[in-house]
């Protein structure tokens, strides 16, 4: 076990002791309760019945994100090329959010790497990239569930012999019902279309 793994495990373990000790309104996205009062809409990706684990070790269904806008990307922590840039792009988006959108927009990163991206590894990544617990969620799932989510988002991916993933660079905006309302391919693209999509999605029903 190298020093990085040790550190990752240590921070992960420390974190596990008190994952949800937050005031009700400041709960991290993953710690909200699944609100199933009304059925999800026909186009909602929250209809998926797959189970995911967040970087704080909590098992969730995607439906817990209902009620907040989500900016979603798929990635993996050992990615050597574009993933860090995508995450960086998303951080820029967070900074560029107009006042009225802050607090209502969450950022969701889902890993391709079911094998290596354990909750501990994801958590170390969160620390390294300085992603706030208030609005950022990092998830891992079983290979079939990752494949299904990717299929639904239109993300293509393939694992190569070195265990690296070749994948589409795609950022998706989900409205409060979990419906895809905007997608943006590529890296270092303009922030304005995404901000506009988020503003539009808060203004009324899609």
């Amino acid at each position: 076990m190298n020093i990085h793994t040790r550190l990752a495990l240590l921070t992960g373990t420390m974190w596990l002791f008190g994952p949800c000790a937050f005031a009700e309104d400041a709960k991290p996205p993953c710690c909200r309760e699944l609100s199933a009062s009304t059925p999800f809409t026909d186009r909602s990706i929250y209809q998926l019945e797959s189970d995911w684990t967040s970087d704080i070790g909590r098992e969730i269904r995607l439906g817990v994100f209902r009620g907040h806008l989500q900016v979603v990307a798929m990635f993996f922590t050992t990615c050597e090329s574009s993933c860090p840039i995508i995450v960086d792009d998303m951080k820029h988006m967070e900074k560029a959010l107009p006042e009225k959108l802050r607090g209502n927009v969450d950022f969701l990163l889902v890993s391709f790497d079911s094998e290596r991206d354990t909750p501990e590894v994801l958590h170390a990544y969160r620390e390294k990239m300085h992603l706030s617990t208030e609005h950022w969620t990092l998830l891992r799932g079983a290979p079939d569930e990752v494949r299904e989510l990717a299929a639904i988002l239109g993300v293509n991916f393939q694992k190569d012999a070195r265990g690296q993933f070749m994948h589409s660079n795609l950022i998706t905006v989900l409205n409060t019902e979990g419906e895809v309302v905007h997608q943006q391919a590529g890296i270092r693209s303009e922030l304005q279309p995404i901000i506009a999509a988020l503003e539009h999605a808060t203004q009324g029903k899609p």
Partner: peptide, 28 residues
Amino acid sequence: SDFNSSFVTGDARGDTGLDRQFFCGAGS
């Protein structure tokens, strides 16, 4: 089952038809 593991965009006759900006790891 993994239909979405294919990476061909547009014209596949010339180069691999892949674009670095849209696909991570595309150059390889």
